[in-house]
Design a binder for these strands. Structure first.
Length: 222
DNA sequence: AGCTGATCATAA
DNA sequence: TTATGATCAGCT
């Protein structure tokens, strides 16, 4: 693992220096082998970039650069710069959530400041030849924050009311709740309709592509 | 073609 | 099992 950046400026400088590199080039710098495809290595690019930038949160429920209050997110884009995938944010809490507020939530703490790293993601480009784009730091503005808060509160209320199994990816304007598990057989505790504990497939919060499309457009002017 | 539900690898 | 990193792939 490379050293951890000691300031936002250092982090951004190191991130900028990756722009334009192919995955093959960055992999070589980090003594890693490039997988033929990402089917069995879905997190490979994200972990490669974490390694290069010295992220240190590991598998803790904290932003990647906790001392800088920065979360790192790669985002696969097509040749027009549009996101190809939704962005996973965090696992959704399904029990012990009474009194939990948006501003105390893990979701808020992970999204209050994000270093976005666009990456080429089209499947017809060999993984080794895909390139890293221009990283940019983002903080939600007042309107984005209000939207996030509203979606989060609506979804969390349904969870609190024992309706988790009725929430689909269609709920929410910019945030959605979807399965986040090894497979559909995985189980975790959640609140049942009668208030007792039941077992359900774990869920995660994801940012919809319509929202991240606007983020990228704002960042790169238009 | 885009989206939703399902899935893969790994650490602790 | 839960958390991290996400993308896959069938269906509409």
């Amino acid at each position: 693992m490379k050293s951890s950046p000691q300031s936002i400026e250092e982090l951004l400088a190191r991130a900028d220096s990756m722009a334009g590199l192919t995955f093959a080039q960055l992999a070589k710098l980090n003594d890693q082998i490039v997988p033929k495809n990402l089917r069995r290595d879905k997190g490979w690019v994200g972990q490669l970039i974490e390694h290069e930038l010295g992220a240190n949160a590991g598998s803790k429920s904290e932003p990647d650069f906790n001392h800088l209050d920065v979360e790192l997110k790669t985002i696969p884009i097509n040749s027009y710069g549009k996101p190809l995938e939704t962005t996973f944010v965090t696992v959704a809490p399904l029990i012990n959530i009474s009194g939990l507020t948006f501003f105390d939530s893990v979701l808020f703490h992970k999204l209050k400041q994000v270093l976005w790293v666009p990456i080429e993601g089209e499947r017809d480009i060999p993984v080794a030849e895909r390139r890293i784009g221009c990283p940019f730091l983002w903080q939600p503005d007042a309107s984005q924050l209000a939207q996030l808060k509203q979606d989060w509160e609506e979804i969390m209320e349904l969870i609190a009311l024992g309706q988790v199994t009725k929430v689909t990816a269609r709920h929410g304007e910019i945030l959605q709740l979807r399965p986040k598990a090894a497979n559909s057989a995985a189980l975790t505790e959640s609140i049942a309709e009668d208030g007792s504990i039941q077992l359900t497939n774990p869920r995660g919060f994801y940012l919809k592509t319509q929202f991240t499309t606007r983020l990228l457009a704002n960042a790169f002017g238009n």
